[in-house]
Design a binder for these strands. Structure first.
Length: 439
RNA sequence: GGGGGCGUAGCUCAGUUUGGUUAGAGCGCCGGCCUGUCACGCCGGAGGUCGCGAGUUCGAGUCUCGUCGCUCCCGCCA
């Protein structure tokens, strides 16, 4: 990686770990400042602003293999401290960043796996990924694609489907080819699986030679059946699943069901490395709890030029110049072309519900840097641990991290975290509140 | 914050459903044999508070309750 990046004119530059907390994004790890009682540093979630400032300062190709910190709950592929291969380039477009990323992946896979990757990697827009796979990180090692059947179902006699469409939701289907022998219990178990993603049910049709065996088939007209058969390519022996709800729930449920079935039916080639770019992510999503828009990627991502007028008019319809690198259904990298104009950056902050005083206080240094003639720039960061995990064929990120944290973010070796001595706390002007033993 | 799984020898695990004498296997370890295959073979051996604590029972690895830990998932992860 270093060789590749050095050869391509990238300069390795370190950025601070003791930095300031930023409002957007994951929960920060805070570090108390002894010299400034009552004040705290935050460990960086990524060197995002620093690398942008480096671009503005004239370093046109930067990289860093850097530890990042996010205080969120752990998963099989998530540690609270993790390593990114972080890079940024000036005067570039998506294509330039992707080409560098592809070249680096090709080098890594050639040297580590001895396999040559086909370049360039396929690209899929976010909209198409969601439509066909239900997830923004589709595993393209197998088929089983989802099909939207909302238009057929909106007038059907099956009220659950028709009403879901009437309320602005969708109905999608997944044809599990040849799975007609699934037992009632197995189907019930799959229904339980999708209920985790808030799907209220899992409808199904077993396609027999002469008829459909299904709790819902009786609600469909002959015309509807014919159209379903055509669109879902239904053949005798097939088992077709349906979920109706909001688009978010339907995609989440069927997308995860698809991955489950792909694995269970042995459709996944373990030796394959399927890379895929997902592009044109939405700029914002709506946070129901906080009642405001949130950046899907981060607030410094440039909106798609063609959508710029939606920034105020239709924030949810606004697409961004963000891209993710997906490998075998796992997000292994993500980046974007950044905002390099102050007025656009301010409009984005405002769309996020931040008042000028607020963003001036938190990001004033960034805004004034943009004022000083920022070049168009963009970059990407790869999850090094996650990439290594996949390269090693391991199911857990802990398998490739020395001294990993447990799921409760503890280190069993050193017994960290631990209580601090009173003298240390005194120096830091920190008073610890004891939790009540029972509550 | 919520739901599930697991905790038995140094390691990986079986045994728990239907409670019953000395709790098993593979690998590893120790000793011996073999000795032109010191990552082979043969023989023998050491090694376990069955996570912890209560309870039920004549009797608990097995059942009940509690507790601790690990783990997977949902939420969360700009």
């Amino acid at each position: 990686m270093r060789q590749y990046l050095n050869e391509n004119g990238f300069l390795d530059i370190e950025t601070p770990f003791l930095t300031r907390s930023t409002p957007e994004g994951a929960r920060d790890y805070l570090v108390p400042s002894r010299a400034n009682p009552g004040q705290f540093y935050a460990l960086p979630q990524s060197p995002q602003l620093f690398k942008q400032l480096l671009m503005i300062a004239g370093f046109d190709r930067y990289y860093q293999i850097v530890r990042c910190f996010r205080d969120e709950d752990l998963r099989a592929d998530r540690q609270p401290e993790f390593t990114q291969i972080d890079l940024e380039m000036s005067f570039v477009t998506e294509d330039d960043v992707m080409a560098v990323a592809e070249g680096m992946m090709a080098r890594i896979f050639d040297q580590v796996q001895g396999c040559s990757l086909a370049l360039p990697f396929p690209r899929l827009t976010y909209a198409e990924a969601m439509d066909r796979f239900g997830l923004d990180k589709p595993d393209t090692r197998f088929g089983l694609e989802l099909k939207d059947v909302s238009d057929i179902m909106k007038t059907s006699g099956f009220k659950v489907f028709a009403e879901a469409v009437a309320k602005g939701g969708i109905v999608k289907a997944l044809n599990a080819k040849g799975c007609i022998d699934f037992t009632r219990k197995e189907i019930d178990d799959l229904a339980a699986l999708v209920s985790v993603y808030r799907a209220k049910g899992l409808a199904w049709i077993k396609v027999r030679e002469d008829q459909w065996q299904s709790p819902i088939a009786k609600f469909f007209s002959e015309a509807e059946k014919a159209e379903l058969t055509r669109r879902l390519e239904m053949q005798p022996g097939d088992l077709v699943f349906f979920v109706a709800d909001s688009a978010r729930i339907v995609n989440d449920a069927l997308g995860n069901l698809r991955n489950h079935l792909g694995d269970r039916l042995g459709l996944v080639d373990d030796a394959a490395f399927n890379f895929l770019w997902v592009t044109e992510f939405p700029m914002f999503e709506y946070d129901e709890t906080e009642k405001r828009y949130q950046a899907l990627h981060h607030p410094f991502t440039a909106p798609l030029e063609a959508d710029l007028d939606k920034l105020e008019a239709d924030p949810l319809g606004l697409r961004s110049r963000a891209y993710d690198l997906v490998l075998n259904g796992s997000e292994v990298g993500g980046g974007s072309i950044r905002i390099h104009q102050r007025d656009v950056q301010e409009r984005v902050f405002k769309a996020l519900g931040m008042a000028p005083e607020s963003y001036e206080e938190k990001f004033g240094f960034m805004l004034s840097a943009l004022d000083s003639g920022a070049p168009p720039h963009g970059g990407i960061a790869f999850g090094f641990d996650r990439l290594t995990m996949i390269l090693c064929g391991q199911p857990s990120i802990r398998d490739v991290i020395a001294f990993p944290k447990t799921q409760k973010a503890a280190c069993l070796l050193t017994n960290a975290p631990s209580e601090a001595a009173q003298a240390q706390l005194d120096e830091l002007s920190i008073r610890v509140r004891r939790l009540a033993p029972e509550s």
